[in-house]
Amino acid sequence: MSAAAGGTGTTAIWGRAEQQDFRSRVRGCLLGGAIGDALGAGVEADSLDAIRETHGEEGVTDFVPAFGRRGAVTDDTQLTLFTVDGLIRAQVRRDTGAWHPPTDVHRAYLRWAATQRDWGPDERKEDDGWLAREEWLYSRRAPGRDCLTGLGDDTMGTLDKPKNPDSKGCGAVMRSAPFGLLVGWEPQLVFQLAVECAAQTHGHPTGYLAAGAFAVISHALARGDDLDSAVQKALAHLATRPDHEETTEALKRALGAVRQGMPTADRVASLGEGRTAGEALSIGVYCALVAEDVRHGLLLAVNHGGGSDSTGAICGNLLGTLHGETALPPVWLVELEGRDTILQLADDFALEMTQGPALHGPAGSAPGWLARYPRA
């Protein structure tokens, strides 16, 4: 995107059409991921046979009740939203000279962890910002053990000393699409940031490299690439990293499955169950690659015997970023839990990335913006 200034995430001159396109992609990414998450939430623990026995030969074709309602999201969407919150806060805090985005994202993840143990937002401080005060987020939605233990204290995992060093579960990759929305950054920096933030909970190389690869794919899509080219860019970045082989092979299996013929549930199953980071990325990418439209891709991504919520979320993030919000099925949007919050956050992110200098900086700051995203 020509309007993006290199490497920092601060933007130069954006035309109106560019701003509208970017906002549509950000909305598409976050809403699409949440829809995929919600479609898979009600069948995440079921085998494909069980899904078909309950919902018919086509499997799930609509939201099914989960957590007491239709359209409910899981921890996948919760953590993705806090990733966005952390990235906005990093941009705002840059005015203070404190520029270390992994720390700001980690603090955002700690705010998410508080939603998993507190009854509600009553005890939140003003400097926690607006997202941490959204009451509907105070609900346990089957959070992964490694996310909870990795964020169980204030110590931040790093690549040198990662949390859960043996974990390659999908809990980091499924929250990493927002890093790719930093269109003003160079792709290698996007990859590095996603990897560093993944190591805060998932310390196995596959656990964090899959997150980096997903971020680079999303980044290429947000900049206007097609999905196949985006995957090739991720493979090139992976090739430069130690211990990349498992993640690389997972992406190559996805590409190989595309060439094997018409997409089927059996072909999805051949890529794994989606419970490890590599498998979840492989399934999500494959379903996005073969999708006739968003609906087709998402239903393919959730009708399998595995981590249907995470694979649905990853596929939805990709298709939403690729096609923008107007490609998302409206019948699912109207029932999606937290839609208003997701839209507010998406628009705030787009506003920060395109108009940040007008909101805060040496010349003055908008008090309302700093109340939403405090510098503290």
Rank of each mutant, 00 (worst) to 15 (best):
C197H: 09
A346E: 02
S24Q: 14
V195L: 06
E246R: 07
D228R: 15
E58M: 13
D46K: 15
G305F: 01
L238E: 11
P367L: 12
A234E: 07
M1I: 11
S24W: 03
V331Q: 15
L227D: 00
Y109K: 05
L343V: 15
R295I: 02
K125V: 08
D153Q: 13
T115A: 07
R275N: 08
E186S: 13
R124L: 03
L189Q: 15
L81W: 00
L193P: 03
A376H: 14
E352W: 11
K163G: 04
F349D: 04
G157P: 02
V183D: 04
T103C: 05
G207M: 04
C170N: 09
V26H: 02
W130Q: 08
M1V: 12
M1G: 12
R124Q: 12
P367A: 14
E135G: 08
R275K: 12
G33A: 11
L87Q: 11
G169C: 09
H244I: 01
D146S: 14
T264S: 14
D340W: 06
T311D: 06
A215R: 04
W332H: 15
R93D: 02
L189I: 08
G305Q: 03
A222K: 00
G33M: 05
S167Q: 11
R107E: 13
V331P: 01
L189W: 11
A41I: 08
H244S: 13
G120I: 10
L81I: 02
G97T: 11
T326F: 02
T247K: 03
L151V: 01
Q192W: 09
G297W: 01
Q200W: 05
D37T: 01
M1H: 14
R133D: 01
R16T: 14
L79C: 10
R267C: 03
W185A: 07
L39S: 00
E273M: 12
G272D: 06
G224L: 03
Q344K: 15
D243H: 14
A132G: 05
L251K: 10
D348K: 12
P178T: 11
A66H: 11
H106A: 09
I51D: 09
T248N: 11
G28T: 07
A254H: 00
G28F: 07
G203F: 07
T80P: 08
K125G: 06
